[in-house]
Design a protein around this nucleic acid. Sequence first.
RNA 1: GCCCCGGUGGUGGAACGGCAGACACGGCGGACUCAAAAUCCGCUGCCCGCAAGGGCGUGUGGGUUCAAAUCCCACCCGGGGCACCA
Length: 949
Amino acid sequence: MWYLQGRSRSSQKARGHTKGRQSTPPTSIAWHSMTYDHRAIESSWQKRWEDEGLYRASIDWDRPKHYALTMLPYPSGDLHMGHWYAMTPSDARARYMRMKGYNVLFPMGFDAFGLPAENAAVTRGIHPAHWTWPNIERMRDQMRSMGTMFDWEREAISCDPTYYKWTQWLFTQMFEHDIAYRGQAMVNWSPTLQTVLANEQVIDGLDERTGQPVIQQLMEQWFFRITRYADELLDFDAIDWPDNIVAQQTNWIGRSEGAKVEFPTDAGPLTVFTTRPDTLWGATFMVLAPEHDLVRELTTEDQREAVETYVEIAGRRSELERLEGADEKTGVFTGGYATNPVNGAQVPVWVADYVLVSYGTGAIMAVPAHDERDFQFARTFGLDITPVIQPTGAEPLVADEMDEAYVGPGTMANSGPIDGVEVTDAKGRANPSLAAAIDWLVEHDAGDEHVNYRLRDWLIGRQRYWGSPTPILHRDDGTIEVVPLEDLPVVLPENVEFDGGRSPLHDHPDYSDATASDGTHARRETDTLDTFMCSSWYWFRYLSPQLDGSAFDPEEAAYWLPVDTYTGGAEHAVMHLLYARFFVKAMRDMGVFDDTIATMQEHGRDPEDLFDEPFMMLRNQGQILGEERTGDRLVIDGERDGNRIVASAVRVDPDASDDAGTYVGELMRRTENVLQVKGSDGTLTVEVPEGSPLDIATIPGVNDVNQLKHHLEIQRMSKSKGNVVNPDDLVIAHGADTVRTYLMFAFEWQKGGPWDSHNIIGSRRFIEDVWRIGTEDYRPEAADDIASKNLRRKTHQTIQRVDADLEVFKWNTAVAALMTLRNDLLEARRTRNVSEETWAEGVDTLLRLLAPIAPHITEDLWHKRGNPASIHLATFPEADEAVAREDTVTMVVQINGKVRDRIEVGIDIDAAAAEAAAMASARVQELTADKTVRKVIVRPPNLVNIVAN
RNA sequence: GCCCCGGUGGUGGAACGGCAGACACGGCGGACUCAAAAUCCGCUGCCCGCAAGGGCGUGUGGGUUCAAAUCCCACCCGGGGCACCA
C-alpha cells in the first residue's frame, strides 16, 4: 500500500483516539487575584472542546442547517496572517449562526496538489509528497491554535488517493457526457527543458530558472466544455454574491451578439466574428492572429520572410504581454487579399498580434473609421479608412481629417443597401443598423447571426507530476478509453526523480504502460489534472470524506447542501468561483445528485433550485499586507542641477545630519539606477551612474543600487520581502483571542490593509478588560435607577448593533460596539452605581456577544460565572426594543446647510413641533434676523434645515 | 491594454444623501510611583481666537441637491484579476 495513504490514515486514527478521554476542566481557581493567563486558558479549552466533540456537526432534520465554508487553503508550510484573516472571521460567523439556533457545519481541508511542491522538489531535492504532508500536519496544528470550530472529522485532502479517486471519477463522468474532450491550446514551451512552464515561471519571455527563451506553441490537451454553460453562468438571480464579482464573471464570460461573416480568399474562406456587421462596408483590411491557420497559405513569396519573422517574434510573447503593449501597433502584410462579401472589394490581409487566436475566430475584419485599435493600425501602416457612419448634426467625417475612430451613433452611409439606417448606441438587434445588416447578410447568404463568448473552454491538462492522474488510456490503435470506477484511483507513483525538466510520469514505464479493457497494450495519459479541478468539488467531499463507495453520501448531502455562506479572497473572483459554478451545473446534468434529490424528498425538503449553484451567499475578505517600512536614509554627493543630482557617491547612514552631503533624505522610489530621494528640500531625482561608489554599512562587500531599501507604503507579505508577521509569535505573546479580535477590529474586512503590529495593544487591553469585568465580584454602593436604566439601554443597544454587524460581516464595528459596552461597564465598576442585576445582565451579554469573536476567554468566564454548559451552546442575546429605545435625541438645526444649533428633543417629536423648536432657538433668531426664510426642511427628530437669505 | 475595487485626522478606521472623524492606536497634559513600566483621569482634524465663536476640511476638477465622504461626469493615484500560482 502506498505510503501517502498510510500516513493520512494513521493521522486520522490518532485524532480519533483523543475522543472520549476525560479531561479536567480549568476551574477551581480562587475568584480574586486571578490574572489573565491566555496560554493556560486557550490550550485547556481547545483540548476540552475537542475531547467533548463540541464542534462535531451531525444531521438533525429537526433543526435548520447552515453550511459555512471558507476557501480551501494550499498547504504552503506555515500558517500566515492571511489564513488567520480569512478563517477566524469566517469562524466567528459560523459560531454566530450556531448561537442563532442553526446546526452548523464548518469543515476544513487542504488543496494539496500544485506547483510549489514541485518547485521544492526541483530546488531542494524534496519529494513533493514529503514536502506536502508535513506541511499539512504543521498547518493543521497551527490552525488548532486559532480556536476555530472546524469539524476535523470532515477533513478532506486533495492529494490523498481517497480524495482524488473521486476527482478522477468526476473526470470520467465528464468524458462520458462529452464535457471533457481533446483540443489544441497554446502553452509556454521551454525548448531547453522540453517541458511546459506555468505563466508565473516565465518572466519577459524567459524561463525564470534557467534564463532560457520560452516559446508559445500549440499542444493537444484536455478541456472541459464550460462554454456550453456560458448562458446559464450569466444568470446570478438565485445567489447572493457581491456585485463586483458578478460583474467580473459577466465580463469574463463576455457574451456579445453579432454575426459571422465569410471573406473568400484564394486560400479558402476566412471567417470573422464581428459585433458590428453594420460596418462591413467600411472594412478596408483584415487582420489575422499570427497563429491563424491561413497565415502560411495567404502569404505571398515576396512577403514570406517578413511574415515568418513576425510570427516567430510574436510567438515569443505571451498573450498578456501582447495585450499590455497593445498601444504600439505592430504587424506585417501577408501579400494576400480577401473579398469583402458585401461589396466585392479586394482588401489586404495583414498579420498582427493585437488579434488573439483564442478569441472569436482568430481573424478580424478591420473597420478603421469606427474602431480605435483598427484606426491606430491603419494610421501606423497607411491603410485605407472609409467612414460608413455619419454622426447626426455634426460635420460629416472625412477619412483624412480624422484624429480618432468615430464610435458614436449616427446614420449609415456609403453602405449600399443599408444606407440611411439609424445607428444607436444599443448592442445587438436592438440597434437598427445591426438588425438591418444581419438581415441583409442572412438574406444574401453572406453570413449568420452569431453570439460569441470571450469565455474559452477550460484547459485542464497539466504536463506535471504533482496533480491527480488523468484516468485515461490511449490504446495503441489510437482510440481512447476511460479507466472504470473499479480501477480508480489511478495512483500517482511515488518512485520518481525530478530534474526540473519534463514530468517524470513520461519516463515511468510502470506508470505509463497499461492494458486496455480489450487486453491490448495502452499508454496511460501522463498529463495530470489542473488543481482547480480538485477545488471545484471539495465541499461535497467534506460531507463524507471517508466514504469509499461514492464521492459523497446522499444522506449527508440531502441535509447539508447547498453551501449557505462561502468566504474567501476576491482574487478568486473569476476562475475558481466560475469553475465551481460550472462543476455543480455539470454534475447536476450528469445525474450525480439524483440520489441526493430523492433523499431530500423523503425528508420533505424541496430540492428545486438547490443544485444549480454551489454557494448561496458569497463574501470576500481583503488582503493583509506587509508593514510600512521607511526607506534608507541616503547621503548623496554630486552635482545638483535644480531638482536633479548626478551622484558621485552614495552612502546609507541612518544617523546622517541634513548637511552631511550634497543632499540627504529618505529613498522613496527606485527605478533601475534612478532614485527619488525625499529630504528637507522635497523629493529630488538622483541618478547613480554605473560605477560610482555606493556604500551600505550593514551589507559587507561591494554594494549596488539593487540593495537599497526604498520606502514601502503597502506591500504583499512574502518571505522574499522579509515583511512576514508570524501569527504563532503573536498567539504566544497575546493569545488567540486577542489576535482574532485585532484582526476583526483593525481592518474593514472586505478591504484588508497593511499590518500594524503596534495597534494590537488596543485589542489586548480590551481582552484584559473583559477579564477584569468577567471576574469582578460586583457590589453596588450607590445604585440609582437612572444609571441602571442607562446601562441596560446601552446593553440592549449593543445587542442590536453587534447582531446587525455580525449578520453582514462587519467585524470592526461589532468589536467597536463591544469596546463601547466595555467602557460603560468599567464606568459602572468604578462608580458602583448600577444594580447587581443590571451589572450581571451587562456582563453576561458582553460575554455572549463576544463569544463568536473571542471563544476562549468568554467560555472561561462563562463557566466562572456559574454556567455549567458551554457558552458556545448558549443562544445569542436578543435585544428588548423597549429597553434599547432612546427617550431623547439631539436635533441638529442648520441654516443653509451649516449646523448652527443643537436641541435636545423627545424621540417622538413631530414635524411641526420640530420646526417650532428650531425657529424658537436663540441662535436661529439671531442668525436669521436680517434674512428672509425661504424654506424649512424638517426631518424629525434628527434635523431641521432653514434656507434663508 | 482590458475588467473589478479602493482613496476620509499623525495611523487603522466610523458615518440609511441629513451633526464628518464612532471605536482604537499614537501624541500631549495630569494622577499614582524614589523611579520606570503598568494602570487611571483629561485633551487631541487643520487654521484664526483668551474665550464665545468663526473659517477650512473626506485624492483632484466640475455637476445634481435645501443638504454630497455618500449620487453623476472627467481626471490622478493605489490594489486585485487577465485563463499553467492557488
